[in-house]
Amino acid sequence: TYYTVKSGDTLNKIAAQYGVSVANLRSWNGISGDLIFVGQKLIVKKG
Rank of each mutant, 00 (worst) to 15 (best):
L35N: 11
W28S: 03
G47Q: 13
K41C: 08
V5D: 00
S21W: 04
Y18D: 01
V38F: 06
Q17M: 12
I31F: 08
V20F: 03
K13N: 12
L25F: 02
Q40M: 11
L42G: 00
K6F: 04
N29A: 02
G8W: 05
Y2K: 06
S7I: 13
I31Y: 03
A23R: 07
V22M: 09
L42S: 00
A16W: 10
R26A: 09
Y18K: 05
S7L: 13
T10G: 03
D34E: 10
T4E: 13
L25H: 00
W28H: 03
G19K: 10
D34N: 10
N12D: 14
W28C: 03
L25M: 06
I14W: 00
I31D: 03
L42I: 11
I43K: 08
A15V: 03
L25A: 01
I43A: 06
W28K: 02
L35G: 09
S32Q: 14
I31C: 04
G39P: 01
I43D: 04
N24H: 12
Q17K: 11
L35E: 15
N29I: 01
L11S: 01
L11I: 10
L42C: 02
S32Y: 13
N12I: 13
G39K: 04
L25G: 00
S7V: 14
V22C: 06
V22A: 10
L11H: 01
G19L: 09
S32V: 15
Y3M: 05
G19Q: 12
I36K: 02
K13Q: 13
G33H: 09
R26Q: 13
S27L: 15
Y18A: 08
G19M: 10
I36E: 03
S21V: 05
R26F: 04
W28N: 04
A15R: 02
A16C: 08
V44A: 04
S32H: 15
N29F: 01
V38G: 05
Q17C: 09
I14Y: 01
S32F: 12
A16F: 12
S32I: 13
K45E: 12
A23Q: 12
T1I: 12
S32R: 08
G19A: 10
I31E: 03
L11R: 00
N29R: 00
D9I: 01
I14M: 03
N29V: 01
L42K: 00
V20G: 03
I36N: 02
K13V: 09
N12Y: 14
D34L: 06
I36Q: 02
K46E: 15
K6W: 03
D9H: 01
L11D: 01
I14G: 00
N24T: 12
Y2C: 10
Q17T: 12
G33L: 08
G30N: 13
R26C: 08
L35K: 12
G39T: 04
L35P: 07
K41H: 11
G8K: 06
Y18W: 14
T4W: 10
G30Y: 10
V5F: 03
K13G: 13
L11N: 01
A23L: 09
G30H: 14
N29S: 03
A23I: 11
Q40V: 05
W28P: 01
G8Y: 05
G47E: 15
A23P: 09
G33Y: 07
D9Y: 01
L25P: 00
R26Y: 05
G39W: 03
G30F: 11
K46H: 15
T1C: 07
K6S: 11
L11M: 08
N29G: 01
T1S: 12
T4H: 10
Y3T: 04
V44Q: 01
V20Q: 08
Y18F: 15
G33A: 09
Y18L: 12
A16Q: 12
G39A: 04
Y18Q: 08
L42Y: 02
W28F: 05
G39S: 05
G39L: 03
S27W: 11
S32P: 10
K41M: 15
K45G: 14
T1L: 14
Y18M: 11
A23W: 06
W28R: 03
G33D: 11
D34T: 07
L11T: 03
Y18S: 07
K45R: 12
V38S: 08
K6Q: 15
K13Y: 11
K45H: 15
A23K: 10
T1N: 13
S32C: 08
A23T: 12
K6I: 14
Y2A: 07
G19W: 06
G47F: 12
T10M: 05
D9P: 00
W28A: 04
D34K: 06
K45D: 15
Q17R: 10
L25N: 00
R26T: 08
F37K: 08
V22K: 07
K41P: 06
Y2I: 12
V20R: 02
K41L: 15
S27C: 14
D34Q: 08
A16E: 12
D9V: 02
K13W: 14
V22N: 05
I43G: 03
G39C: 05
I14V: 08
K13S: 15
V5R: 00
Y3N: 01
Y3V: 07
Y18R: 04
A15N: 01
V20H: 03
L42A: 01
F37T: 12
Q40P: 01
I36T: 04
T4I: 11
L42M: 09
V38C: 06
G47N: 13
I14Q: 00
W28V: 04
S7F: 12
G39F: 03
S27Y: 14
G47P: 14
V20N: 04
K13T: 14
G47S: 14
T4P: 03
G8T: 06
S21F: 04
K46G: 15
T1H: 14
A16N: 12
K46I: 15
Q17V: 11
L35T: 11
K6Y: 05
I31R: 02
K41V: 15
V5K: 00
Y2D: 07
V44H: 02
A16H: 13
Y2M: 14
S27T: 14
V44D: 00
N24Q: 14
D34A: 06
T4G: 04
G30R: 08
N24D: 15
D9F: 01
L35H: 10
A23S: 12
V22Q: 06
I36A: 04
S21D: 10
G33M: 08
R26G: 04
F37S: 11
I14N: 00
V44K: 02
L11Y: 03
D9W: 01
D34F: 08
Q40S: 06
V38D: 08
D9E: 04
I36R: 02
T10C: 04
I36V: 09
K46M: 15
T1Q: 13
G30E: 12
F37N: 10
K41S: 12
V38Y: 06
F37C: 09
V20Y: 03
V38I: 14
K13H: 10
I31L: 15
